[in-house]
Design a protein around this nucleic acid. Structure first.
Length: 496
RNA sequence: GGCGGGUUGGCGGAGAGGUUACGCAGCGGAUUGCAAAUCCGUGAAGACCGGUUCGAUUCCGGUACCCGCCUCCA
């Protein structure tokens, strides 16, 4: 069996991965707060941990891995969005507006992450809503956990709030390597007066009439941010499970607080054994932010015609624990490479095993960059092989790439010719015949004229001794594609 | 202020205490009516300063610069 090694943030070391139960490997990924479209940064953990999920399924079997990713559908940003709509004149009650907004956002999220080739979370291989729990469906479990924490002396009630008492948990700060005292010294936030300690965080807070709320022993209110993940992971994965993943920005405070809650509620269990964190995403060397004007969503990129598979490839070019820079140049490179690969594997359906060196790279702390390099080498080897061996190498290549979620049955749709592409191809075929005629007649002035006008359109012309091929990419937007077809038509008229 | 990450050849980006990363671009050759594409070959690196070592880009210490978190943003 392949030994998977993962860098565990908790121990700050790369360790061999040993699941608690190989028959049911359990992993939790912090999902989105559903108030708006997922931006590009949101997509990075989804893609890199999708690769981990695929790797685990490969090693332990599809039915032996459980992958849970939550939707946070109770949040002040959601409330604000709903309130804004009501104030803009929408007559419906706030609850309805919130429900609509979160449902709509979840739909977007699914569509966008599907486009990136991310598998849906699943319980032992079975995709269901259960594997994508919504916070609002687990309020009773959260209340139960909060009551337990109060009973155990780790939380206290103050002015309608329930707060976690960080001083009651000596290990607080261990995950992120911070001490409570240091953090207080550098605190820049105003501290609520009812907190015993400035670092205490909210488990439950009161709701007013304009805010969604649930009845609780502490009055009508709503949960704090962190308790949902503690409650839902316990409900779906148990009190001890294998992997908890997310962006490095969640390390503190979110994951630190999750640990505090879960470990204090269940001091004899381990909670999550391995913590994985991906580094942040940048855009052209800068942090993605609305003020810099380099902020965009996954949907923005898809709408620009950048295929999800290309976005995925760009993500996987960089190791997940390093900062990743999103650049136009990488998109170009990724698209060119994937086009080449798709041509290479065309019409290939495979049930082969992935390459062992490739697998070793992936198992070594998800080294997707090294894995991609291995794919390049494999391709080169396959190309120089004799025919019978070639098939084997190609199939191994495809099986390997598919472990990265690339070259799958659905991901390569964008390389399939569209209707207009077929028309362009047809017209070019006729131009090509005219060009060949000129060449055969040794009328090179005429041949060059045709060739140059095609190249002027960005169409690369490849002439063999007897052959004439064209390479071009159809513009992403329909209007430009139509223009290209028209321009080729013009050339065709001069050929005739 | 506290904590964490980064700095590799023209660009992107890995591994490894001594031996080719890999991709893109470049250069040379084959090929071509000319090109392109393809194939073959090839130069090019480790922010800076010290230390450990027979030997460091790889380990240790320091400096500089960049980035992130501490502000319910992955």
């Amino acid at each position: 069996m392949v030994e998977i090694k993962l860098t565990n943030t908790r121990t700050r070391r790369k360790e061999p991965f040993e699941p608690l139960d190989p028959a049911n490997v359990r992993m939790y990924l912090c999902g989105p707060t559903v108030y708006d479209r997922a931006h590009l940064g949101n997509a990075r953990p989804v893609v890199v941990f999708d690769v981990l999920y695929r790797l685990l399924r490969h090693v332990y079997g599809e039915g032996h891995v459980t992958y849970v990713r939550n939707f946070t559908d109770v949040d002040d940003k959601i409330n604000a969005a709903a309130l804004a709509r009501q104030q803009a004149g929408d007559p419906r009650p706030l609850e309805a507006l919130i429900a609509e907004r979160t449902a709509e956002t979840i739909g977007w999220y699914h569509a966008d992450m599907d486009a990136l080739g991310a598998l849906r979370p699943a319980i032992r291989g079975e995709v269901s809503d259960l594997a994508e729990p919504r916070a609002t469906a687990y309020i009773p479990q959260m209340i139960a956990m909060i009551r337990d924490l109060i009973a155990k002396g780790h939380a206290y009630e103050a002015q309608g709030h329930v707060l976690f008492d960080v001083r009651s948990y000596p290990a607080y700060g261990a995950l992120s390597g911070r001490s409570v005292d240091d953090m207080i010294a550098g605190a820049r936030v105003e501290v609520a007066p009812f907190k015993r300690d400035p670092m205490d965080f909210v488990l439950w807070k009161p709701s007013d009439a304009d805010t969604p709320g649930w009845d609780s022993p502490w009055g009508r209110g709503r949960p704090g941010w962190h308790i949902e993940c503690s409650a839902m992971s316990e409900a779906l994965l148990g009190r001890s499970f294998d992997i908890h993943a997310g962006g490095i920005d969640l390390q503190f405070p979110h994951h630190e607080n999750e640990i505090a809650q879960s470990c204090c509620a269940h001091p004899h269990d381990e909670f999550a054994r391995v913590w994985l964190h991906n580094e942040m995403l940048q855009v052209e060397g800068k942090k993605m932010s609305k003020s810099l004007g380099n902020f965009f969503t996954v949907r923005d990129l898809l709408d620009q015609g950048i295929p999800g598979e290309v976005i995925r490839y760009v993500f996987l070019m960089t190791h997940y624990r390093k900062p990743m820079d999103w650049t136009a140049e990488k998109v170009r490179e990724a698209e060119a490479t994937l086009r080449e690969w798709h041509t290479f594997v065309e019409h290939c359906t495979t049930s082969s095993e992935p390459d062992s060196e490739f697998l070793a790279a992936l198992a070594d702390d998800l080294n997707t960059s090294a894995a991609i390099s291995r794919l390049h080498v494999m391709l080169k080897e396959a190309m120089t092989e004799s025919t019978d061996h070639f098939i084997d190498l190609r199939d191994t290549f495809v099986a390997s790439a598919q472990l990265l979620g690339l070259l799958t049955a659905v991901s390569g749709y964008w390389t399939m010719p569209t209707a207009i592409e077929k028309e362009i191809r047809e017209a070019l075929g006729q131009v090509g015949r005219g060009l060949q005629e000129a060449r055969r007649a040794r009328d090179y002035d005429r041949a060059d004229a045709i060739k140059n006008s095609l190249m002027g359109l960005g169409i690369s012309v490849q002439l063999g001794k007897e052959t004439c091929d064209f390479k071009w990419t159809t513009p992403h937007d329909a209007e430009s594609a139509q223009k290209l077809l028209y321009a080729v038509g013009n050339i065709l008229r001069t050929v005739r």
